[in-house]
Amino acid sequence: TIEDAIKKLLKLAQKGQPYTFGDFTVTSEEEAKKLAKWLKKQL
């Protein structure tokens, strides 16, 4: 689910690992949080 993807994304971001989700490449926890907010709006 999208919720699971968001959780995984935040965990990876906390470890400092870049994470690619579709067109987004997230390289920081701050970016992960922005992406998570955006994804929730898409639901």
Rank of each mutant, 00 (worst) to 15 (best):
K15H: 08
K34C: 15
Q17D: 09
E29V: 13
E30L: 09
Q42W: 12
A36T: 04
D4E: 11
Q42C: 14
S28N: 10
T25F: 13
Q42P: 01
Y19D: 03
F24T: 02
L39F: 03
K40W: 15
I2R: 02
E30Y: 15
S28A: 04
Q17M: 15
K8W: 14
Y19N: 04
K33F: 11
K8F: 13
L35K: 00
T20H: 05
D23K: 10
T1F: 11
A36K: 04
F24I: 08
K15T: 11
F21C: 15
K15L: 13
K8G: 03
G16W: 12
G22H: 07
A36W: 14
I6C: 14
E31N: 05
G22W: 15
K41I: 06
T20N: 06
A5T: 10
I6E: 00
W38I: 02
D23Y: 15
K34P: 00
E3W: 15
G16I: 11
L12I: 06
A5V: 14
Q14C: 15
Q17P: 15
E30I: 08
A5K: 08
A32S: 02
E31L: 14
L39I: 06
Q14H: 06
K15C: 14
Q14W: 15
Q17W: 15
L39V: 02
T1E: 05
T20I: 10
K7F: 07
L12D: 04
K15R: 11
E30D: 11
K33R: 13
T27W: 10
T27I: 11
F21N: 03
P18E: 07
W38C: 07
S28I: 13
A32R: 03
K15D: 11
T25I: 14
Q17N: 09
K37C: 14
K40P: 01
K41V: 05
I2W: 13
K34M: 08
E29N: 06
L39T: 00
K33A: 08
A5G: 03
A5S: 04
W38T: 01
K15W: 14
W38M: 03
S28V: 09
K11T: 11
E29G: 08
I2L: 08
V26M: 08
Y19A: 08
S28Y: 06
T25Y: 12
T1Q: 08
V26E: 04
A13W: 14
L35P: 00
L10S: 01
L9I: 06
L12H: 05
L12Q: 03
F24K: 01
D23L: 15
A36F: 15
L10F: 07
K15S: 11
K8E: 08
L12V: 04
T25S: 06
Q17S: 07
S28E: 03
T20Q: 08
K37Y: 10
K8Y: 12
G16D: 08
E31H: 06
I6P: 00
F24P: 09
G22D: 10
Q14N: 09
K37S: 09
E31R: 03
Q42E: 03
L10K: 02
G16S: 05
K7I: 09
D4H: 07
